[in-house]
Amino acid sequence: MQYLVSVINNSTDLATDAEQAAIDVFNDRLIADGYWVFAGGLGGPDSSTVLDNRGETPVVTDGPFVETKEYIVGFWILEAPDLDVALKLAAEGSKACNRKVEVRPFL
């Protein structure tokens, strides 16, 4: 199965050098152990643009689509046999990036 592990941020602070170093170590391990699918960091909500093309012409608005105190600042996509393995990896990821994470399965 594949899982999306979203990193939840509640400030505009980017990862510190120490956090980035820990994330790199964790990523290397994910790759070495075959769990890695993809990962990335995201720009903050201020940089988002919302687009709705369900009507006749596309409507472009300055994002984000919902204002929240907490938002997704990055993510991993992991390949894991079940939720227990995914949760264990997510726990390590949370430690490495020093933030809360949310685990959701791909359908």
Binding site: M1, Y3, A80, D82, L83, D84, A86, R104, P105, L107
Partner: peptide, 10 residues
């Protein structure tokens, strides 16, 4: 089912 909670003893 969806989240893949395993059917096993930890």
């Amino acid at each position: 089912k969806t989240a893949g909670i395993p059917y096993r003893v930890p």
